[in-house]
């Protein structure tokens, strides 16, 4: 199963560290955006690297492909800049760069992955709100969190009912 960047938005403090780190790694253009939905509620958002990616399906130049780690990437020399991918994308992530005349999107920091490192946004996130994991791992984390809650509840009930532990 491929790993992707997930966000635990309960932990997000909206510091935009991910944006700045992404911009630094990608020549000044950030492919992850922080959205402040209301006061004190925010989450970062990047390409979901969809399993059945609509951007790949609609690309007339076949410039979008999935690499070995499952990241949806753009072949820059083949992109014609038609912006179909950003129309097809439900999140509108691929962005047109007028200077280069091509579409640019998150590549899960391919240059960092080559060196065996995590994407820059995940490495820099001060509160661990961004998690680089596969879906199974995310599920496991969720299950563990829920188990901890249930355990706490069970302990409380035992205290009230006078249990043995």
């Amino acid at each position: 199963m491929e790993k992707k960047v997930f966000i635990d938005f309960r932990n997000c403090i909206g510091c935009r560290s991910c944006e700045i780190a992404c911009a630094r790694e990608h020549h000044g253009k950030a492919n992850i955006t922080l959205i402040e939905t209301s006061e004190l509620l925010m989450m970062s958002f990047n390409c979901r690297h969809c399993e059945n990616a609509p951007c790949m399906l609609v690309c007339p130049a076949r410039a979008l492909y999935k690499d070995e780690d499952g990241a949806v990437r753009v072949k820059y020399q083949e992109c014609i800049g038609c912006m179909f991918c950003s129309i097809a994308c439900p999140f509108g992530t691929p962005e047109f760069v007028p200077e280069l005349k091509i579409m640019v999107k998150c590549d899960l920091c391919s240059h960092r992955r080559d060196e065996g490192k995590l994407p820059a946004c995940v490495t820099t996130c001060p509160t661990d709100a961004l998690i680089f994991a596969s879906e199974e791992e995310i599920l496991q984390i969720k299950v563990r969190q829920n188990l901890a809650k249930v355990e706490e509840l069970a302990k409380k009930v035992e205290k009230i009912m006078g249990g043995t532990t």
């Binding site: 510091c15 700045i20 630094r24 490495t123 820099t124």
Partner: peptide, 19 residues
């Protein structure tokens, strides 16, 4: 990011200004 030694910023993480 500094991940190998004990530094004030745990696991070498940085805020936007640091980045």
């Amino acid at each position: 990011y500094v991940t190998d030694i004990n530094v004030p910023n745990d696991r070498g993480k940085l805020c936007p200004k640091g980045n």
